[in-house]
Design a protein around this nucleic acid. Structure first.
Length: 242
DNA sequence: TAGGCCATCTGGTCCT
DNA sequence: AGGACCAGATGGCCTA
């Protein structure tokens, strides 16, 4: 197969290309190829089908059959080329789908990693993606705020000890969900390496146990044990709900 | 059954 | 040119 098909393949899937999809010859180009080059001095080359004054039929007996045969060949070639084009596009699409799937799997893996370092809920409730992101955002903010208070020696600064490192997540319970019992929180903390750190919720004297420290619009993702609730109002920004 | 969440496919756009 | 990224569409699964 001569150049035209190769040209076609290299141009596949190139929507920005100004040429037609495949580099296939248009009917006019194809026609022009079949025409002898017009000499500068000679009469203008006859146009193809649809051109003024041209009927598409030859005056020469027998030439009509040749023309029909050429058209049939072009038609078959076009069908083959388009089939090839389709299969090539298909295989590229399949590859792109595969990459996209892989990319989303990586994204989900990263999200899982993020979940694993966030305080977890005892009933194994898996945070949704958006919840994970919001929770992480607020959690980071709360940790930073706690450290800031601790450095300033303000009330709530003691939360530095209460907010535990991520690897101790099981002993840093989020707020108890309606279905979870406080016992499981306490036992989880006791079994963890950082059991020495009292759970704010299991400790009645903990600010987190009082209403003054029940922050947020009943949204568990806004609650951080050990933080004074007015801190919440100073939060620079929350990822907005929509 | 409606609504929420998710995975996947797809075409467009941007980047290297 | 090819890959990454993005957003819209679609269908499946689960739960209230």
């Amino acid at each position: 197969m001569p150049a035209p098909l190769e040209t076609c393949l290299s141009d596949l899937d190139c929507p920005s290309s100004s040429s037609d999809l495949s580099g296939f010859l248009t009917e006019e180009e194809d026609c022009a190829r079949l025409q002898p080059p017009a000499s500068a001095s000679g009469p203008p080359a006859p146009a193809c089908r649809g051109a003024p004054g041209i009927s598409g039929e030859s005056d020469v007996p027998g030439a009509q059959d040749d023309e029909q045969e050429r058209r049939r060949r072009r038609g078959r070639a076009r069908v083959r080329s388009e089939a090839l084009l389709h299969s090539l596009r298909r295989s590229r699409r399949v590859k792109a789908n595969d990459r996209e799937r892989n990319r989303m799997h990586n994204l989900n893996a990263a999200l899982d990693a993020l979940r694993s370092v966030l305080p977890s809920f005892p009933d194994d409730t898996k945070l949704t993606k958006i919840e994970t992101l919001r929770f992480a955002y607020n959690y980071i903010w709360a940790l930073a705020e706690t450290l800031r208070l601790a450095d300033q020696g303000l009330p709530g600064g003691g939360a530095r000890e209460r907010l535990l490192p991520p690897q101790c997540a099981p002993c840093l319970p989020g707020p108890p969900s309606p279905t979870s019992d406080a016992e499981s929180w306490g036992s989880g903390a006791a079994a963890s390496p950082c059991a020495a750190a009292p759970s704010p919720l299991s400790d009645p004297s903990s600010p987190a146990a009082s209403e003054d420290y029940a922050y947020g619009p009943s949204d568990p993702l806004f609650s951080f044990p050990g933080l004074p609730k007015d801190l919440l109002h100073t939060t620079p920004c929350f990822i907005p709900y929509h």
